[in-house]
Nucleic acid binder design. Structure first.
Lengths: 208, 208
DNA sequence: GATTAAAAAATGAACGTTCATTCTTTTTTA
DNA sequence: TAAAAAAGAATGAACGTTCATTTTTTAATC
């Protein structure tokens, strides 16, 4: 059996890595700038020139990473949504009891919103406006499948009310987004106690 | 004692009335067009020219009624919010029991959203984006005072949970807006049964 | 290790378009 | 016929996007 090696000189490898990293840094800076500006001004009041300036990059450079402004926000949305879902379901397994699973996921979602408030805020705005195009929105929704599955099982087992997924979503998950919004506007502050109270209310509203 | 009359010829009076009505009609058409276009495209993707066209009016005519585009959406927001609040509290009196008052107001809000889905949708979008300026937003919030007062009384009487107004709002009222949004996207349909289920979940989540 | 030239990446200025708003003209009203 | 209302064309600013150019990187040669 022959074993082949691809031999790359160390100095070259290093520069390639450094190169890739620099490129990644720029892209990440653009993503962060987009989230920040869209959160504060809204999609259409966040011009490409401003996004570029905040990311310390030329407007033209944006088009090396993204096809258009619409493509930029679509991609940012999908990436943030993916990170959000990964975090929400990270410690969840499908063999859990429904109530335990719900509590776990609910708290992970709350954690995410505390940990990355800007990303959470951005998602809330994407989900509430005609800012993201339909295919990307559909793609983003798919990531919540584990939660939908859990709800379906909960309904079959008679643990949660036989109401629609939208109602379940509205009563258990969505209110957190409203709180985030209020916090962003400086009208309230989310802390340990708020989170606990919110979970209690969430469970009370959906349990059978 | 002298009594004075202002005598207006009937024909003139009629035309003045007709004149005023025509003016009112145009303004109303502009308001309706704004709501419709903002709902479907968002604030910044709803150009004045398009609003004018939908209202069968010249772009310049808009400026006879409103100072600017910002002034237009601010005024539309406040008018819709005022109509919404008036409807929500119309049959409510402060001497009602907390639970009865809450049920009444909750159902009136639901009714409004069924009756005027476009207006409700517009309010939801205003409340979730940086589209309305801060003074107008503050002004709009004031209209919900009767509901806040009812909650405070409910907390004092030990009828509802001692949680913040934002949480109460998020769990009892806000989910309806989420349902409206889903309905607008064709993802669900709100009917008698949904409304009843939603009310049950709302009360369960806030009652002590 | 230094030099150099080709290639790649990044830039800022420029373009065409679109928008909110204004101005001048036309139409309607009294 | 004078005044008021409405219209549509005109305007300047701002935007997304592109393009010609500059800067940086790469790799070969001396």
């Amino acid at each position: 059996m022959n074993v082949h090696f691809l031999i790359i000189p160390l100095y070259q490898n290093n520069t390639i890595m450094a190169k890739l990293q620099k490129s990644k840094d720029k892209r990440e800076a653009l993503v962060k700038a987009t989230i920040c500006l869209v959160n504060n001004d809204g999609f259409h009041a966040a011009p490409m020139s401003k996004i570029a300036k905040m990311a310390n990059v030329s407007p033209a450079t944006i088009y090396l990473f993204f096809e258009s402004k619409q493509d930029l926000v679509n991609k940012v949305y999908l990436e943030v949504k993916t990170a959000f879902s990964a975090y929400a379901f990270e410690t969840f397994t499908t063999n859990m009891e429904v109530e335990a699973g719900f509590e776990l996921i609910w708290n992970r979602i709350a954690d995410f919103k505390l940990k990355d408030p800007d990303e959470a805020m951005f998602l809330a705005q994407c989900d509430n406006t005609p800012m993201i195009d339909e295919p990307s929105r559909q793609e983003g929704i798919k990531h919540l499948q584990p939660l939908l599955d859990l709800w379906h099982r909960g309904k079959e087992e008679g643990v949660i009310k036989p109401i629609s997924d939208y109602l379940l979503y509205a009563y258990s998950i969505n209110p957190l987004s409203f709180l985030m919004l209020a916090q962003h506007r400086g009208e309230c502050s989310i802390n340990e106690q708020t989170i606990t109270e919110a979970y209690q209310a969430a469970w009370d509203s959906i349990k059978l």
